[in-house]
């Protein structure tokens, strides 16, 4: 493609970035395009070569800080949970006297007289008494 065609293609917005680069780097184009390409080259700023590396270092640093923060938060939460468990008064496992009495009464109520075995003396003397028991 000759230069004139390429310039027309550029003016019609049909060139690729590579073609535009080529066109801007060519010195013997038309005067208006030369002025414009000079303006573009002066106003275009590419990143410094070390920028990506320094950005990655910052990201890693942030990652490390986040991990540390999460670790410390977890630790603080564990300590807090431990203290809450330790300090909060636990409900007593000892029964009060009235509760014990009530429990005993309930237990006694389960054994009525009818359910107790009938005792019959089979043999007795001064030393020994033999019972037989039946329900």
């Amino acid at each position: 493609m000759n230069k004139e065609d390429l310039i027309n293609k550029y003016l019609n917005g049909e060139t690729s970035l590579e073609e535009e680069k080529e066109l801007f780097n060519t010195s013997d184009t038309d005067q208006a395009l030369e002025v414009w390409s000079h303006y573009v080259s002066k106003n275009r700023h590419d990143p410094p070569p070390t920028l990506e590396t320094s950005l990655w270092e910052k990201i890693l640093q942030k990652k490390k800080q986040q991990r540390l923060l999460y670790g410390l938060s977890g630790m603080a939460a564990s300590i807090l949970a431990f203290f809450i468990f330790w300090v909060t008064p636990k409900p007593s496992d000892q029964m009060s006297l009235s509760e014990k009495r009530q429990l005993l009464e309930n237990a006694q109520a389960l054994f009525n007289e009818e359910s107790q075995p009938q005792e019959e003396i089979i043999y007795s003397d001064e030393l020994i008494v033999i019972y037989s028991a039946s329900r």
Partner: peptide, 21 residues
């Protein structure tokens, strides 16, 4: 639409620079 806008802008700048120079 971008191609149309770009083409108009480039042509406008080009013709004004030509006039100027």
């Amino acid at each position: 639409h971008i191609r149309v806008l770009l083409s108009r802008a480039r042509k406008q700048i080009s013709s004004k620079l030509k006039q100027n120079y």
